[in-house]
């Protein structure tokens, strides 16, 4: 009972916040008589979204694809980098400078060069988004791998665990918590990365390209429609990470194993 009540409240508060912001916005445009080309009203934006719905949805799909593929590629590459760096000192010594340098170069600068090398297609966008995720993932996963208690390693070794078994059962699960911190932080930044990539090579028809076009035509309602869709994209990406975290780290969200998981002991006798 009170659980459902609490859940309801958790949904109600953000909705109230959203309504307040939109109402404040509508009121401000009306009261201060702001010209439409400077600041459209929420109704103008809603109308624009309704009118240009197919293009916006297609753009959303395009940018979402860039985000998703780039995000996965960056996360996987970062994870592999971290594991290699943890496993070997020379590898760490060689990869660390590369890693730091990759962070020191502004994304916008790489973006221009990538367009020259990879053209106007999907590839340069994926690389940009991947670069955004890559660094936080490497750093956090390295931390997770280093945080494993030496006594646990000693214990499982004394129980006859192989190197692979130690990695699979002890080191790998220890990286999940820091990994998801990194993914949550970079989910929304990745969307920004996708938009920046679209700006330098804007033939893809994503939301970033849509925004740039609307802006250059002083179409403020169009600009705001794009902003709404980008905000939505950021939220969706964040929620996807949260959902994956909930699914993959059940020990952090509950006190018992989930009934359908393979480690759940189903008791026939019922004791």
């Amino acid at each position: 009972m009170s659980d459902r009540h609490a859940l309801l409240l958790r949904l109600v508060y953000p909705l109230v916040a959203l309504i307040l912001v939109i109402a404040g916005w509508a009121l401000a445009v009306d009261v201060f008589e702001i010209p439409r080309y400077v600041m459209p009203s929420p109704m103008d934006v809603a109308n624009h979204i309704a009118d240009d719905w197919p293009a916006l949805v297609k753009g959303f799909g395009q940018t979402f694809m860039e985000f998703l593929l780039g995000f996965l590629a960056g996360a996987i590459a970062g994870f592999v980098f971290a594991v290699l760096m943890d496993a070997s000192r020379p590898v760490r010594g060689i990869l660390y400078p590369i890693l730091i340098t990759s962070q020191a170069i502004p994304i916008v600068a790489i973006s221009a060069a990538l367009t020259i090398w990879l053209g106007f297609g999907l590839a340069p966008k994926l690389v940009i988004v991947a670069l955004v995720v890559f660094f936080p993932v490497v750093v956090n996963v390295l931390d997770g791998l280093a945080s494993v208690d030496k006594d646990i390693i000693n214990l499982v070794r004394s129980m006859g665990a192989s190197r692979f078994s130690i990695f699979r059962h002890v080191k790998l699960p220890a990286t999940y918590t820091p990994l998801f911190s990194a993914l949550k932080l970079s989910a929304t930044f990745s969307v920004t990365g996708a938009v920046i990539a679209e700006w330098t090579a804007s033939t893809s028809g994503g939301i970033g390209a849509y925004l740039l076009q609307a802006n250059s035509r002083l179409n403020t309602a169009g600009t705001f429609a794009a902003i709404v869709f980008l905000a939505l994209l950021g939220l969706v990406s964040f929620l996807l990470v949260i959902a994956a975290e909930y699914w993959l780290t059940p020990w952090r969200s509950g006190s018992k194993a989930r009934r359908w998981s393979s480690s759940y002991w189903k008791d026939e006798t019922g004791g």
Partner: peptide
Amino acid sequence: LLLPWRTVLDNIVLGALL
């Protein structure tokens, strides 16, 4: 030294699990 991501049962049978 229990593994936080394993249930009590999995921790007890850890030797076999490894």
